[in-house]
Design a protein around this nucleic acid. Sequence first.
DNA 1: GCGTCCAGGTCTACC
DNA 2: GGTAGACCTGGACGC
Length: 308
Amino acid sequence: MPFSDSRAVTRSNIRVPRYFSFWRTVYSHGWCSLPPFVVDKESHELRRLLLLSDGTLVYSILREASTGIRIRAESPHTLTSSQRSEVRAQLRSCFRLDEDLSDFFAVVHKDRRSRWIRSSGSGRLLRAPTVFEDLVKMMCTTNCSWGLTEIMVQNLTTKLGEEFPGGVFSFPTPAKLASCTEAFMRKEIRSGYRSTYLIEFAERVASGKLDVEFWRKSKLSTVELFEEVRGVKGIGEYAAGNLLRLLGRYDYLALDSWVRAKYAEIHHGGRKVSDRTIERAYQKYGTWRGLIFWYEMTKDWLNQKFPF
DNA sequence: GCGTCCAGGTCTACC
DNA sequence: GGTAGACCTGGACGC
């Protein structure tokens, strides 16, 4: 645990919007169990090593507070005001605090089946500080078990990330990932056939040929943006649909084997149904359908303090 | 302990 | 445009 007397500590508080739950956001999907995110279940904290734009590493520890989110930021030196601002900006982005969901909350409030989403403080899906990290992780979820995804991401951070005293690691930069050989990726990261896709993607980002961070504020239509995301080798329909959710676009259901089985269990007694049937059922929710679908599939997590 | 089979998305080649 | 097979790993299972 990276505590040290020589460490500079900054404490602050982030105000949160209406209809927000810290833990419902942390457990909105599996990202909180992939490093650099770590949930400390004993101290009820979310921890994460942040890499600032000037290269400074900041170990952030977040707790739920009555006034919002309480942050303890540990760093090798006292943070400047611009560094403190960047820490807060990265965390605000992770928690989607600046995303306007008023229309979404109005839609779910009108729908008896979905009303619980607003009242439970759900609606904001946790994401990484960068689109690069979200996409790399998304690629690591394809065609494998969740356990293997955790192994790949763990290896990416410990073997390619920056180390902070105390044994925690940041997520690797595009340049660091781009410098890897395929053999290294296969042997050390265990990313298998995804290795060439990951390296190629990192090279495009590191060289500036592909600006994925711009996707969060892109004015492209959702269909156009979906196609652009699909242009990354290794990202198919499922991964692109899921990534779009983390970009604030919710038109796609991002069907994978887990949600297909879950939908069949909830609505058809476990009997398999076609993707078209699922899509038809959520058509009425318009551009919010992907978000409402996801929360309906994970509603049973609501009753668990730590769903996973 | 070893071998075999299977699940999991995406890409590519082929029809 | 649709489909089959390959890709790779961990886990389950049988021996």
